[in-house]
Design a protein around this nucleic acid. Structure first.
Length: 890
RNA sequence: GCCCGGGUGGCGGAACAGGUAGACGCAAGGGACUUAAAAUCCCUUGGGGGAAACCCCGUGCCGGUUCGACUCCGGCCCCGGGCACCA
């Protein structure tokens, strides 16, 4: 055995052994319980970062743990290879995205392999391979046939200088990231997937996902956003024609408080009104500027302008003015809203800003008296002397209607029912269920993605590419230059024959959202070699995924799209499951500082933390930085998730090279529990490495002892039984730690699993010099065995090596996971915490089976208890069995 | 702005179903070994008072429930994630 711990050599040897033995290649075996353990595949950004190490180590720990539990475990890996960063790299370095991506894949795969993950690499997939994405295209066409995929217009961020569509990420404060030009909204056609058809099922099935974190289920439920309300119309006349302005509201009980309506800038009513109103037309143009992001829209200044058009209130017959509001979106609901400024915060501020009337129609009897509504003045009633007291009641539904004619006195529920019925009678509305969820727009005006298999023919229209012509292969030699999709310049790609009429036609150049790629890759891992079908019956064995692990940032979109896609595949008869992931572990993100600077053009550039010198305030908080390269100031953006685009990733390579994979794995598991956000710092890596060195040294020194014990285990077990003294307590400690480790692994708290293994080593070192030599040797053999077994999922290389070297067996991969021995955990006497009035004052030792009277007597007799109860009357004694006794005195 | 999380020593974190706050580490200080350094090992380490026994304070802030609150409830502040074209 080597004297010195040399992770590089040892890890390479272990990995070679696993590779030669094909240790992690698995096949379907109906006789064994299967366990499909999957980590979200990485985007091949160039190098792994700590978030990847964290994600894949968690997955690997679970994989190895379940193997030891006897499961047939599949852990595959692949690459989410299409996406925007490849195009950005192309712009910067003039290299084709395909080349850049494939080079990154090769490097990252080698990095992943050096970490020793128990991955079945024979199943590797990359979403940029036609073998994979042809099935995106095929399924898209299946959806198109069934109307699940369809075409409509979409609103995108438009950079008027580069003449290109911008991703939300490329819009910085309403401006294009490269040009600095103010972004405009633009309507273009695109394909959508009707995820809303599945809204009910996607919501209902959340209840069945009890292996998912509650917070993810809550987020998804809120995102789907089922709300029951009333859809109704305000009649109006336009050029002598009768028209209806439709709106949706969840607060129909406030309908009598409507004092104006607001429509989106793109609403037909607004368009019509602008025809003879240049000021309004200019305002509508203004509204069309800015980004399409919800966060931008929600936080921007609410603005509006009257259209001059009035509609009729469907119940009161009042004339209601219609405004154009920049906060009303054409894509949501009807593109128009009723406004009740007295009972809606946004409407209230809008009304105040434009001096629109406010009419209270809900009151809260028994609550604070409502403020009086001042009489309307010319130009509006909201100004001056007006109280905002009902702010605190905005969301409440427990008031009753007032100032509402025949609805006065009605509760929320009654009022909504009666008002809906009245509207229905007039043919102007009804109750309706509305969803926040919108259909999924998948068209991207980008090059590096899966081509949408459609041909545009002047005669036949949009024609689907027939199955036998699939895949539509993306040419891989294009280099985007920032001015739009380079496919548009590729005549050889665009020019094609119409599949229907055979005449010359134009191929669609939009590609698919990369979320399409990641919506079903987990199924393809079961049958990556099938070139005739998207999936086959092997999927029935492996799916659904038993444990899915990935960043919390995917809590909504990726996971929801995958759930939707599964249900579509199920309805097409392709798979049997409706939910793809039985258990989900959402890893917290690994954060690092973000530094950026505005470029001359008004764009933005990011600096890696090692490229700047941070500046601190008196509290030690970072306020800014200067670039080490040019000495000029750099802005501090705070902490954020490690990403390629923000340049704040930390490459684990240096860590692996200096300390080895086991140290890197141990450290990242030890640093914090997996679901928690982790602000990156490598302080503490030394400690993890020191632990493994200590383990190495201790095992080295124990070899002859363990040889001895293993040759005659029974003899040493007898010695142990006979020895007594401190020995049972030491063995008990190991079983206690083991019990805790088992519990912690079951709840995925790997940091305390790691610290448990450290405690075991501490206990082993502490027990080295105990009385009976034979009994000590027995404990050492037992303890070290537990230590190696429980450490092996986290640090598979060193444990693999030591297991063999110490003679425990020929392969730790085949060893079963250890269970604590309840017999060893028993004890005759226990220690109870002694409290007086809830404050700890000492402890009492009592027999393990002592009854309440005996414990109370022991507690009251305790010196500290007597001291703290002196002069007081004991009122009661609270006893928590096995834990504490609390004397309540006063 | 809306939805979802989080906040505990100098730092990462522990405390399992309301029951000993600070496990296990890092860093720091002191010591041993060494010609010296590295490595390794031992000791100390939340704050305050005290010679000590021991006592007081302490889990973002304010208030509440309880014999007892990091844990439960109400309100606030700060940080992170998501908001549909980053993945």
């Amino acid at each position: 055995m080597e004297e010195r711990y040399d992770p590089a050599a040892l890890e390479a040897a272990a990995q070679k052994r696993w590779r030669d033995a094909r240790a992690f290649e698995v096949t379907e075996d109906p006789s064994r319980r299967k366990f499909y353990c999957l980590s979200m595949f990485p985007y091949p950004s160039g190098k792994l970062h700590m978030g990847h190490v964290r994600n894949y180590t968690i997955g690997d720990v679970l994989t190895r743990y379940h193997r030891m539990r006897g499961c047939n475990v599949l852990q595959p890996m692949g690459l989410d290879a299409f996406g925007l960063p490849a195009e950005n790299a192309a712009i910067q370095n003039n290299v084709p995205p395909a080349k850049w991506t494939r080079e990154n894949i090769a490097y990252m795969k080698q990095q992943l392999q050096s970490l020793g993950f128990a991955i079945d690499w024979t199943r590797e997939i990359a979403t940029c391979d036609p073998d994979y994405y042809q099935w995106n295209q095929w399924l898209f066409l299946q959806m198109l046939k069934r109307g699940i995929a369809y075409k409509k217009t979409q609103v995108v961020n438009w950079d008027p200088v580069d003449q290109t569509v911008l991703a939300n990420e490329q819009v910085i404060d309403g401006r294009g990231w490269r040009t600095g030009a103010p972004v405009e909204k633009k309507e273009i056609p695109g394909y959508y997937l009707a995820i809303t058809r599945y809204a009910d099922e996607l919501l209902a099935d959340l209840d069945r996902l009890d292996g998912w974190p509650e917070r993810v289920r809550t987020m998804q439920a809120n995102w789907i956003g089922k709300s029951t309300g009333v859809r109704f119309a305000f009649p109006y006349e336009l050029d002598g024609k009768k028209e209806l302005l439709w709106v949706f509201t969840t607060r129909a009980d406030t309908i009598m408080g409507v004092t104006f309506c607001a429509v989106a800038a793109e609403h037909p009513l607004a368009t019509h009104a602008a025809k003879n109103n240049p000021k309004l037309a200019a305002f509508i143009d203004e509204c069309k500027r800015g980004s399409v992001m919800e966060a931008d829209i929600a936080t921007m200044e609410k603005q509006g302008m009257p259209t001059g058009i009035f509609v009729t209130h469907p119940l009161s017959g009042e004339k209601i003015p219609v405004w154009v509001g920049n906060y009303v979106l054409m894509g949501y609901g009807e593109g128009a809203v009723m406004a009740v400024p007295a009972h809606d915060e946004r409407d209230f501020y809008f009304a105040k800003k434009y001096n629109l009337p406010i009419k209270q129609v809900i009151d809260w009897p028994g609550r604070r008296q409502s403020p009086p509504i001042p009489p309307l003045q010319k130009g509006g009633g909201a100004a001056g002397g007006f109280s905002d007291a009902w702010h605190e009641w905005y969301a409440d539904k427990d008031g009753v209607c007032v100032n509402s004619g025949r609805y006065d006195g009605m509760s929320y529920r009654t009022a909504v029912d009666v008002i809906a019925a009245d509207l229905k009678k007039k043919g102007l509305g009804d109750k309706q269920v509305q969803w926040r969820l919108r259909d999924w727009g998948i068209s991207r005006q980008r090059y590096w993605g899966c081509p949408i298999p459609i041909v545009h023919c002047e005669r036949c229209g949009d024609v689907p590419v027939p199955d036998h012509q699939l895949p539509v292969v993306l040419p891989e030699d294009c280099v985007p230059d920032g001015s739009g999709n380079p496919l548009n310049k590729r005549k050889d790609f665009i020019k094609c024959a119409c599949p229907k009429c055979g005449k010359a036609a134009r191929r669609e150049t939009d590609t698919m959202d990369t979320f399409v790629d990641s919506s079903w890759y987990y199924a393809r891992y079961a049958c990556p070699d099938n070139d005739r079908a998207m999936v086959d019956k092997r999927v029935d064995y492996w799916l659904p995924v038993d444990q899915y692990i990935g960043g919390i940032e995917h809590a909504i979109l990726h996971l929801l799209y995958s759930r939707f896609w599964s249900k579509v595949m199920r309805d097409l008869g392709l798979v049997r499951y409706g939910e793809p992931f039985s258990n989900l572990l959402t890893q917290g993100m690994v954060l690092n500082h973000i530094y950026s600077r505005r470029t001359g053009k008004g764009g933005i550039e990011y600096f890696a933390p090692e490229e700047v010198e941070p500046r601190h305030d008196d509290d030690g908080k970072i306020t800014g930085a200067v670039s080490k390269a040019d000495g000029r100031p750099v802005d501090y953006q705070g902490m954020g998730t490690m990403s390629k685009s923000k340049r704040n990733g930390v490459d684990p390579q240096a860590l692996i090279e200096k300390y080895g994979a086991d140290t890197a794995r141990f450290f990242i598991m030890f640093a914090s529990p997996p679901e928690q956000t982790l602000e990156w710092s490598d302080a503490g890596v030394e400690g993890a490495h020191r632990f493994l060195k200590r383990l190495w040294t201790f095992a080295n020194a124990s070899k002859t002892s363990i040889d001895l014990v293993l040759k005659n285990e029974q003899k040493y077990a007898n010695f142990f039984k006979a020895a007594g003294g401190a020995h049972p307590a030491v063995l008990r400690e190991f079983h206690l730690i083991l019990k805790q480790i088992n519990f912690d692994i079951s709840r995925h708290q790997f940091n305390t699993v790691a610290s448990g293994t450290m405690k075991m080593l501490n206990a082993l070192e502490g027990a080295a010099g105990l009385g009976s030599v034979e009994a000590s040797l027995f404990i050492r053999k037992e303890g070290l065995k537990f230590l190696l077994l429980t450490l092996s999922p986290i640090c598979p290389h060193i444990t693999d090596h030591l297991w063999r070297e110490l003679g425990y067996g020929d392969d730790i991969l085949k060893a079963p996971w250890p269970e604590p021995d309840e017999e060893a955990l028993k004890q005759d006497e226990i220690e109870l915490v002694l409290q007086v009035n809830g404050r700890m004052r000492g402890s009492v030792r009592v027999a393990a089976d002592a009854d309440r009277a005996a414990i109370e007597a022991a507690a009251l007799a305790h010196e500290a208890a007597r001291r703290h109860t002196a002069g007081l009357t004991v009122k009661k004694v609270v006893l928590v069995p096995g834990r504490l006794v609390n004397i309540v005195a006063g």
